[in-house]
Amino acid sequence: MKTAERPQNLATAVREALVVAMEADADVCVLGTDVGEFGGVFRVTSGLLERFGKERVIDMPLDPAGVVGTAIGMALYGLRPVAELTFADHAYGAFEQLTSELARVRYRSNGQLACPVVVRMAAGAGGGGGIHHSAHPEAHFVHTPGLVVVCPSTPADAKGLMLSALRGEDPVVFLEPQALYRRSGGDAPEGDAGVPLGVAREVRAGSDLTIVTWGAMVRVCEDAAAKAAADGVECCVIDPRTLWPLDLDAIAASVAETGRCLIVHEAPRSGGLGAEITALVQERCFLHLEAPVTRVTGFDTPVPAALEDAYVPSVARVLAAIDGIMSF
C-alpha cells in the first residue's frame, strides 16, 4: 500500500486493523447491525463482507444485548468475535450481558474459560446525535472488574490497540471517539503494528503541569498546551490509551516531576474516570503536589444536540484550568 493511501483517520485505521487480524486469524469474525452489506454506520467495516464473506462478517438485528450475548457464545465456542454496538449509548441495552456475563466469564469459571470478545462502539459527541447518540460511558466499564477499556486518540493507536485487543484473552470495550472517525490524525503504520494494552503515550513533554486526557480530548489539550507554552507554561500531555488497566506509573512519574495535575475528559464530571484518577494521583503523589488535582469535564447532563460545543471541554476551558492551577 502506498504511503498516500495509508489510513489517516480512526475509521480507516480500525478497518485496517480488522483486515490484518482477520487475514492472520480465521477465528476473528465481525458481527453487529449493518456491519456487512452496509459496511457499518460509520463505514468502519466497509469492504469486509466482500473480502471475508458472510460467515465472518455477520449482520445482526438491531439488538445490542443479542449482539453481545451471541458474541459471548461464539467466544465460548472458540471464535474471536468483534461485536459492533454502533453507538456507546446502545451499550446500555446490553449492559447486563457486558457487565454481568462477558466481564465475569473468566472469574466465575476460576480461569477455566476465556471470553476474548472485543466490543466496539462510537463514543462521545461530534456527530450532532444528541442525548442518545453521544455518550462517553467509560466510567461504567472501568468500574466493572474483568473488562479492559480502550480509547484511542490517533489512527496509529486505533490500529495498534485493536490488533492487541484481538490477540489478548480478555474482553475489551473499545471506545472509538465519534469526533475522530473522519478527522485526519496522521498515518497509521503499515502492517502488523500492535500497540501494547495498558501503556500510556506521552503526547507532549512538559515540566510545569501534567494533563491526563484521552479520546477526542487529546487534540483539544494539545492545542491548549501549545497556547500555554506561548505564555511560558510547559504542559506534559499524557494519553493513557487504555483506560483500564490504567498506566498509573506513567501518570505518577509525570506528576511527581510537575507537581500539578489536570484531568480532561468528555464524560460527565460526577463519578467519572477523572475522579478515580484524582484519587489515585493524590494517593501516589500527595507529597509532590503543588496544587489541587483539577478536572475539566463534560457536564452532569446528557449531551444536547444543539449544545455539543458548550458541553464538550474546549481549549478555552482547559486554558482557564491551567491558569487556575498555575496561580494556586
Partner: peptide
Amino acid sequence: AVQDPARGVVLSAGAPAAHLLHAAGFGHA
C-alpha cells in the same frame, strides 16, 4: 452454578435467561 467446561457444562447464576443467548451464539458459531 457448575463451571465444568471440560465436561461441556457452563451454568450461569446471572439474569435467568442470559445464558440462552450464549447457547444461541455457540450454536451460531
